[in-house]
Design a protein around this nucleic acid. Sequence first.
DNA 1: TATTGTTATACTCTATAACTATA
DNA 2: TATAGTTATAGAGTATAACAATA
Lengths: 140, 140
Amino acid sequence: MTPTAPPTPAQLMDQLAQAAAGYYRSFAAVAAERGLTLMQGKMLSLLRRPMPMRTLADLLACDASNVTGIVDRLEARGLVSRETAPADRRIKNVTLTEEGEDTVRQIRAELMSSLTGLEGLDEEERITFQRLLARVFPAA
Amino acid sequence: MTPTAPPTPAQLMDQLAQAAAGYYRSFAAVAAERGLTLMQGKMLSLLRRPMPMRTLADLLACDASNVTGIVDRLEARGLVSRETAPADRRIKNVTLTEEGEDTVRQIRAELMSSLTGLEGLDEEERITFQRLLARVFPAA
DNA sequence: TATTGTTATACTCTATAACTATA
DNA sequence: TATAGTTATAGAGTATAACAATA
C-alpha cells in the first residue's frame, strides 16, 4: 500500500463538484417520486417555519418574481398556504400545510436512506466532516 | 470550551444541503459573469475531452433531447463544436473550441478563488475531506 | 420614497413522444 | 432491431421591467 497522496485544491474542487451533483441528483429523484421538481422540493425543505416570500427568494438565490410561481404551484397542490402578516400587510408568510409537513418528512427520510454513506460515519468522522464543510462553505 | 457534540446524520445531511447550495451558488455566479447559465457552465466544465452528446446527457443527468439545445447555444457562441465520429456516424462528439478552453480555465480559476476555504486546508485535511466525500458520494 | 409581492415578457431548462440516420 | 441525435410540444424555472398595495 502506497500512502495516499494529498489531492491538490483543484482536485478537491472537482470532487466537490461531483459531490454537489450527486447530492442534487439524489434530492431531485426523491422529489420526483412525489411529482415535485427540484425547486419545489427545495422550497418545502426550507419551510421549517413560516417565511416571507422575499426570504424564500434570498434562500433559493433567485429573483422574488420566481417565488410567486413556485408558491402558486405548491399552493394549488395543497402543500403550502399564504398568510398575510398582520404587523406588515405587504408581507405574505408561506406556511406548510399538514400535507406539506408530511411530504417534507418523507423527503428527508428518503434522502437520508438514499445517502447510504452518511449513516456509516462514526461520531468522530461526523464531527470532522461537519467542520470541513463549515470551513469551505461558511454559513451565509 | 465544551467539547463539540457530534452532529446527528440528519444534521449532517442539512449541512450537506447548505454546502451543495453554496457550491452551485458560487458556480452559477462565476458562469453568469460570462453570460452563461448553470447548465452551460456545467457542460463546458465536463468537456475535458470530446464527448458524444449521449454521454453528456448521462453526466448532466438530463434527457438527451435537452443536450441538443444546450450545445446549440454554446456552439452559436463559438465555445464548442460538433464533429461526427468517423467510426460511427450516428455519434457527434462535442469539442471545446480554443475560446471554450479559455472560458473553462477562467471559470475554474474564479471558482477556486471564490471557494476561499479550500486553499486554507492543509494536506492532511485535504486527504480527510477527499475520503469523506468519496464515502458519502461514491463515484457513479 | 422604499419595500413586498404580482404580472407580463422573453429565454432557458425539462421530459415525453415521434422522427431521421445510422448501425 | 436498436442506438444517436433531432424536432415539436408543453410545463417549469429564470431575470428584467413595470405595477399595485403598503409602509
